[in-house]
Simulated scan of single mutants.
Amino acid sequence: MASKTLFITGASSGIGAETARAAVRNGWNVGLFARSQDKLDALVEELGDKALALPGDATSLTDQTEAMARVAEHFGDVDAAFANAGMGVSGAGTLEGEPEQWDKMIQLNVMGVLWTAKAASAYFQKNGGHLLLTGSAAGRTHIKGSVYSATKWFVHGYGGNLAQEFREWGARVTVIAPGMVDTPFFDEPKPDKLHPSDIADAVIYALSADKRANVQEVFVMPNG
């Protein structure tokens, strides 16, 4: 049976890169989408011919649509997509927050997710594929003035709405919701928190579920 193909945004480091490694170990092809050509090329060198580097901007519907088309042409189809790219901001709250940073964050955390869903839906309507979104524990609680948290509330709400739409095609939608993960997202290391591989394992779990089951949300929290 031919290998299935997973498209990953934010694939150059952290959760995205670890998910790519886990997917390849489990027999998937991977399309690696991110802005950093050098990091993508290094990851392709590591993973071999089951990986394809796709430099682009997740806030661009055109970039994501064209990248998925390249993946489909190269590997035969897009069977799953992981809308993982995201960012936070340094200024917490509304009073101290920077509007310019909010704009960049909303473009990536909200619009970037919309663009992945939009681009992938054309494939999944035909093949009953699987869309995964990186949510957050912050998207299920109220954090004083946090615009970042609000963007993740959007991801959780939209993920549920998508699941209702995609099920009409036999497609699935999963929100992966981590607590604090030790990734380049933070300025300082968090070695006592989750590792990106823990989140990658959750992605593989959702992808591997029997087709009759839609694992709609997976919460992964630090055990300490």
Rank of each mutant, 00 (worst) to 15 (best):
A53M: 03
D49V: 00
Q216I: 00
G10C: 02
D187Y: 10
D187K: 15
R140I: 13
T62F: 03
A58S: 11
T5S: 15
G27N: 10
F33L: 10
A206L: 04
A137D: 08
G112H: 02
S36V: 02
R21M: 08
K104D: 14
S208D: 12
S121L: 09
T9M: 04
M105E: 11
G157D: 12
N29I: 06
D210A: 01
T116P: 03
K104W: 04
E98C: 01
L47K: 04
N223Y: 04
W102Q: 08
R35K: 13
V44R: 11
D198L: 03
G31M: 06
V71L: 06
V215S: 00
A67W: 07
D63N: 11
F124A: 07
D41R: 13
D198P: 01
F75W: 05
D77S: 14
V113K: 02
R21Q: 11
D187A: 15
K126Q: 12
T134S: 13
V155K: 15
G86D: 07
G135T: 08
R172G: 01
R140E: 15
H142E: 10
P222W: 12
I143W: 13
F186M: 13
A69T: 11
Y158P: 08
S36R: 15
P184L: 14
K152S: 08
H74Q: 11
L32F: 03
G179N: 08
V110H: 02
W169T: 02
Q216V: 01
T151D: 11
V215C: 00
V173G: 01
P189C: 09
K126Y: 00
R21L: 07
R172S: 01
Q64P: 00
Y158K: 10
D192T: 10
T94L: 14
E188D: 13
I106E: 09
L32E: 07
K4E: 13
N29H: 15
S146C: 10
G27V: 09
Q107H: 06
A11L: 05
A202D: 05
L114P: 00
A69D: 09
G31H: 04
L194W: 04
S13C: 01
G145Y: 13
A85H: 06
K211C: 00
A117L: 05
T9D: 05
D182L: 14
G97R: 08
A206F: 03
